[in-house]
Each structure stands twice: as C-alpha cells, then as structure tokens.
C-alpha cells in the first residue's frame, strides 16, 4: 500500500473482506510515520495505491485439531484463518496474546469463531502470564497443526515450544518489504538454511526451520531512520485531520 505520492510502500496483512461490497480491511498499530499517518485518514479519503493480495494463499484444509495463536494486532488476520480453518471442518483452539489486559483485542469474536479460547498477557494482568502454559496444554492435548501470527519474538517462542511435540507449525513472517513482488530482496529470510523471499515465497513458513534471530536483526536495520521520520512528522504538526484522534 502506498498512501500518497511521497509515501512508502508498506505491507499489511488482510484481516477481512466483503466480496459483495468489494472491500478489504486491514488492522495495524500506529508505530511509524506511515501507520500513524494512515491512522489519521478520515473516512472516504483516498489512498494512492493498493496492490494485492500478494504472497501465497494460506494452506487451508482439514487437518483435524488446529491450534491458532495470535499476538497483538495480528490477532485480526489470525481470526480470518480461524474462520477458514473452522469452515474446512477443523476443531480450532485459539490463543490470544497481548502485552496487557487493556491491549487485548477481539476476544469476543474469537470466542464465537473457535471451539475453545485461551488468553495470555505478558504482564499476567489478564489470563495466563506469558505463553509457558502452552507446554501444559500440549502435554494434555494433541494438535495436528499450529498456526502462529504475531510479533517475531512470539512466533519464535511458540515454534520452540511446539517443536518437541512435533506439531507442524506455520508462522507468518513480517520482514521489511518494499515492492512485495520479488524484485528487491529486502524481505529475504533464511528458512531451512535456504534464502527465501518473504513476499513471494511466503509469507507463511515452517516455524521450526526459520532463522528468527536473523529476521529480528534484519527488521531493525532501518530503525534510526524510521524513528527520525516519525519524529519529524510529529514535530511538524503530525496529524492534520482536525483532531478526531488522540
């Protein structure tokens, strides 16, 4: 998505669509300049360009028992998968993770869509504290597949937990992207010792084969510039939408 003439190209995961109305929806955190700016757009305001959907479609079929784990803002697109997995005849257990109780989103939706829902927060202010409870859950119950969408650290930790249980684990990787069509290689990740492009070979990869440490370092390569861009935008007045946002 490119917001305007001078904007960046940013990748966003689709979190819903309505084929009848011809709409797609995205959920994002306002973390950098572009997302903050997008957050200021008012209803009906035009976005310069949206290209997509890009990347490979998710593998949806009947696996049996599926464990869907979503963290933070990625809960929104995860629920789309939960819905699809359910429709494909799977029994779905959903785990929602967030930093704090206040940051938890879409719990109600998750409950209507899944057979069972667990919640967890980093600080323990709501539900389980951290994801360690998964160890106990996996000892008790057998799952045929695990789908994780969330911050890289969370996907890394979940993959480490599911590995000893031998549960095929699919992670949705979010490297930096520019074109999203395989032309720049900024999205390269190492999976199973091989170089892959997140945008065209992914976004879903085998969590047990992914080099998460490299991905974490690569995600940070432009951090100083990103901070600068965001800061400059804010100090130069930031949101000019008339103040309907905090």
């Amino acid at each position: 998505m490119v917001p305007h003439e001078k904007g960046e190209r940013v990748p966003l995961t689709i979190s819903g669509y309505d084929a009848k109305k011809g709409t797609v929806s995205f959920a994002f955190h306002e973390v950098g300049k572009t997302t903050k700016e997008l957050g200021c757009y008012s209803e009906g305001q035009e976005i310069l360009n949206v290209t997509g959907p890009l990347g490979n479609p998710s593998e949806i079929k009947k696996f049996g028992k599926v464990l869907c784990i979503g963290g933070s803002i990625m809960i929104a697109p995860l629920l789309l998968q939960v819905k699809a997995m359910k429709a494909a005849g799977n029994q779905v257990t959903t785990v929602l993770g967030a930093r704090t109780k206040e940051a938890m989103i879409m719990e109600k939706e998750a409950k209507t869509l899944s057979d069972k829902v667990y919640v967890a927060t980093d600080d323990g202010s709501y539900g389980n504290k951290g994801l360690d409870f998964l160890n106990d859950l996996l000892k008790k119950e057998k799952f045929d597949r695990c789908v994780v969408m969330g911050p890289v650290v969370m996907m890394r930790d979940v993959s480490a937990i599911t590995k000893p249980f031998g549960i095929p684990t699919v992670v949705t990787l979010t490297p930096i992207m520019i074109d999203g069509m395989g032309m720049c290689g900024v999205c390269r990740v190492t999976v199973g010792g091989k170089m892959m492009f997140g945008c065209v070979d992914g976004p879903e990869f085998d969590g047990h084969q992914t080099n998460f440490e490299e991905l974490i370092l690569r995600q940070r390569t432009m951090l100083p510039e990103e901070r600068l861009g965001s800061l400059l935008w804010e100090t130069s007045g930031g949101c000019k939408c008339g103040g309907n946002k905090a």
Binding site: G185, L228, G229
Partner: peptide, 25 residues
Amino acid sequence: SANEFLIRVNLMKGYLFPEYDTPIR
C-alpha cells in the same frame, strides 16, 4: 541488492528522505 538500493533511491526517492518517506541508509 542493487534493486533494493535503486528502488529505495529512485522509485521511492530515498535521496529526498525525509521529505519522501522511504529511507536509505
């Protein structure tokens, strides 16, 4: 990659960062 560098600099006008939003380091 040359393409990443050139796309940042030319297509996204990284040489005009921060006027344009795409950085090049």
